[in-house]
Amino acid sequence: MNIPEELLYTRSHEWVRIEGDIAIIGITDYAQNSLGDITFVELPEKGAEIKQANMFATVESVKAASDVYAPLSGTINKINQDIIDSPELVNRSPYEKSWFAAINIKDEDEKNRLLKASDYKSYVEGLGRK
């Protein structure tokens, strides 16, 4: 299971890369692996407001459709058109090529609710034991 050290995570399996007041967000390796082949991604438009822990995107795999939750609140600054055109990128490269969106962070304090890589790793390992 690939869990890059420098990212922050949610218990709903999204990741966040902080770059100044911008957050780049996506779904984790664990998420893509659980979903299986991803066949469709729906993203909000540029300028849309998203709210921490609320649904902001949808991914569909062969077997099911799933919600993706916003790890932080903010305004969509940019979306990744590549994963709309080629959803299989999310399976192949969950952290590099298939970021979902970049947002302007609204509330810095919300970062405190995110998990560090080591904590997310323990959390995922706990799921595996259930």
């Binding site: 299986g36 082949d37 066949t39 062969v62 077997k63 299989e88 399976n91």
Partner: peptide, 20 residues
């Protein structure tokens, strides 16, 4: 394989991936 219940059975749903 990823295994999942299928009726009364625990069956292989996929190995490499459904699409492949």
């Amino acid at each position: 394989a990823k295994l999942a219940p299928f009726g009364e059975w625990l069956m292989p749903i996929q190995y490499e991936g459904i699409i492949a």
